[in-house]
Amino acid sequence: MAAQNLYGPGVRMGNWNEDVYLEEERMRDFLDKREKGELLIQRNRRLKKNILRPMELSVTEDGFAHYGDKVILVNPDHPRGEEAGLFQEGDLSLCMSPDEVKAQISDELEVPCGVSAVRTTTPTGRNTFTILRDSTNSDAVDPVLRYGQNFCLGIPAGLECKTHRHLFLRTYFGKEVEVAAHTHLDSHRVEKPKNHWMLVTGNPRNKSTTMLDVPKPPSDDTRAVEQVMGINT
């Protein structure tokens, strides 16, 4: 005997009253969180807006880096070495990489946090660091960062870093390049390019760019050729 539907679509069955109350409670909870800005999508938007906001780097007048300067750390582009497989070319900047799970439940960046390298030299809240004194020279009065001095960064990160341009990791912002604290030396005991990091300051002619965007002056050979050709420089 075939089963028959003895009830019409408008008939309520089971704990229908509880289901209605639960649905209303979920809606009230949703509206309350939206009003307070506590929805997951709202948290994500605020966090990304904060750490991806444009930043202005410090402009140096004397050519030195100073304590308190805002800079970006850049691993300059270099040829592939012994790495095999995929290889990220271009200038890479050190960026903070928040924990994906913790970023979902907090509006603020939790420190210390991980770091990664990204192919960009545009200053943002994510890759802009402040040079700070460490405990060994906290009483010094010289504002200039000298060679060999220990220093700290406004966002915790290792200073003796290397880039694994052939190793990629999934971060809160997508696929990026791994950064590790290790020193690689060649046969002459010289650090390899993957260990080279530059402190980059702002462009005095355009505060939205960096010193990497300033055209390099022509070499002596170029000037000689231009003089022979009658080109004014």
Rank of each mutant, 00 (worst) to 15 (best):
Q4V: 14
L6P: 01
N15Y: 10
D19Q: 13
F30V: 07
F30N: 06
L31I: 10
L31S: 00
L31Q: 07
D32H: 14
R34V: 01
G37N: 10
Q42L: 05
R46G: 01
R53Y: 11
R53L: 05
M55H: 15
T60S: 13
D62R: 14
F64S: 01
Y67W: 06
P76L: 03
R80M: 03
A84C: 00
L86G: 15
M96H: 13
M96V: 12
S97N: 06
D99A: 10
E100W: 12
K102W: 10
Q104L: 12
S106F: 12
L109I: 07
V111A: 05
V115Y: 11
V115L: 14
A117K: 08
P123C: 15
G125H: 06
T128F: 08
S135G: 13
A140Y: 01
Q149I: 00
L153E: 08
L153K: 03
G154A: 02
A157G: 07
G158M: 13
V177T: 09
E178Q: 02
A181V: 07
H184K: 12
H184G: 06
D186P: 11
K192N: 08
H196S: 09
H196V: 15
V200N: 01
V200E: 02
R205N: 06
S208A: 13
M211S: 06
V214A: 05
P217D: 11
P217L: 11
P217H: 01
R223Q: 06
A224F: 00
V228H: 08
M229I: 08
